[in-house]
Design a protein around this nucleic acid. Sequence first.
DNA 1: AAGACCGCCAACCGCCTGGTT
DNA 2: CAACCAGGCGGTTGGCGGTCT
Length: 270
Amino acid sequence: MGRQPCCDKLGVKKGPWTAEEDKKLINFILTNGQCCWRAVPKLAGLRRCGKSCRLRWTNYLRPDLKRGLLTEAEEQLVIDLHARLGNRWSKIAARLPGRTDNEIKNHWNTHIKKKLLKSGIDPVTHEPLHKEAKPEESSSYPADLLPESSNNNDMQEKDGIVINSDDNSRSPTENSCSTEDSLLLDSICNDEMLLNSLWMDEPPLVDASWNKIIPLAAENTNNYMDYPSWEDNYTGLSDCQDFGVHDFGFDCFDTIELSALNILEMELNR
DNA sequence: AAGACCGCCAACCGCCTGGTT
DNA sequence: CAACCAGGCGGTTGGCGGTCT
């Protein structure tokens, strides 16, 4: 007995999203907020599966997403977190504001994996590929690929995954990263509590999920200032700080729609 | 110039989890 | 407590663009 499909397969469109569909989805989410993805296609006038809408939104249309390749620091952080967490892409993505699990997963599979292999490191275990060849080495990571967990002897194992009990020993920020990147890593990598929260199911201290921003902003505009990527990308939002899900309508929509249209324009120019 | 090959990434699929009834 | 449901997650695929021959 298979699971019921998440949507009626008949009449549901698949494949690449068109600019028109994107616009419909953006308009709907910005007007109504995120709720009940199953109902979104119908309400937004899309012939798509709700799941597909959610993915499109979280992986591509969300306004706080960063574009372009991961920075050196971000890559470093991904390697380090992967060494601790394994393929828990969503957990890893939660530590990288503006990045999605899908993006990180793709970047891992296409870039980082190869980089590690080239350096003689098993991307799964983060151990040297030919350990017996150089057993005296504590780590085979080159300077630019050194995860914290591999250069620290004080390791712990939890649920079969190696974690590091002393995260303050060294951070990847010692590499040549921008100040901004360094700050990001300092705030994330060196925070024992934050790393512990990766294992507990506590709300993350730094959470990139945009859907949390609107309610936060509605009850405390100071909190909303904690999300620079959002602010940077959508300065116009500061003009409507009192918005809530239902107030997030057409009065402040022009600015946001401009951003949405920018995305669509980018898409059309591709 | 054109066909073959390769890499990247958006999107899909199926399973899992947590909440609700 | 079981059944159901929606959302979330990770693995995988397929199409497209770039590079190579």
